[in-house]
Structure formats: structure tokens, C-alpha cells
Computed example of a mutant assay.
Amino acid sequence: MFEQPRFQRQASPAHVSSNACRLDPQSCMFDGQYEPGERQFAEEEARRLNRAQVERLRRMAIH
């Protein structure tokens, strides 16, 4: 059986990765070495995604 890699550098459909992470959060954690600049990129992307989610939730609360 095909096994999903623990860390994918290619973007995958959000609903697929989101569902996989909900079922097994540890499977979405990267525990290897970062490439130069990758950690900073990941942290900035996490901040961007968190801000986008906050804005989405705010818009939902208004309507």
C-alpha cells in the first residue's frame, strides 16, 4: 500500500491535507532539518495563514 510522505514540499489540496492532519496531527509534523531560509518562510507562512483565518472568522461572525 502507498504511504504518504511525512513532509510534502509540493502543495496538496487543502481539504486532503487538512483532513489528514485532523485525523493524525503527528503525521503533518516535520521533524527533520530545515533548508536555508525554510524555517523563516514556514513561520511567516503560518502567521499569514493565521491572520487569514482570523479575518475569515471575523467575517463569519458579522454575517
Results as ranks from 00 to 15, higher is better:
Met1Arg: 15
Met1Tyr: 09
Met1Gly: 12
Glu3Met: 14
Glu3His: 02
Pro5Leu: 02
Arg6Ser: 11
Arg6Asn: 10
Arg6Trp: 13
Phe7Ser: 06
Gln8Ser: 10
Ala11Ser: 11
Ala11Arg: 13
Ser12Ile: 09
Ser12Tyr: 07
Pro13Leu: 07
His15Ile: 11
Ser18Gly: 15
Ser18Glu: 08
Ser18His: 04
Asn19Met: 11
Asn19His: 04
Asn19Cys: 01
Ala20Thr: 06
Cys21Asp: 07
Cys21His: 05
Arg22Asn: 08
Leu23Met: 08
Leu23Cys: 03
Asp24Val: 14
Gln26Ser: 10
Ser27Thr: 07
Ser27Asn: 06
Cys28Trp: 02
Cys28Lys: 03
Phe30Ala: 05
Phe30Pro: 00
Asp31Tyr: 07
Gly32Cys: 02
Gln33Trp: 05
Tyr34His: 15
Pro36Trp: 07
Pro36Ile: 06
Glu38Gln: 13
Glu38Trp: 05
Glu38Leu: 04
Glu38His: 04
Glu38Lys: 00
Phe41Thr: 04
Phe41Met: 12
Ala42Met: 07
Glu43Arg: 14
Glu43Leu: 15
Glu44His: 11
Glu45Pro: 00
Glu45Asp: 13
Glu45Ile: 03
Ala46Gln: 08
Arg47Asn: 04
Arg48Pro: 00
Arg48Glu: 08
Leu49Lys: 14
Leu49Asn: 03
Asn50Gly: 01
Asn50Tyr: 07
Ala52Ile: 00
Arg56Cys: 01
Arg56Tyr: 15
Arg59Glu: 11
Met60Glu: 14
Met60Asp: 09
Ala61Trp: 05
Ala61Val: 00
Ile62Tyr: 12
Ile62Asn: 10
His63Leu: 09
His63Trp: 12
His63Arg: 12
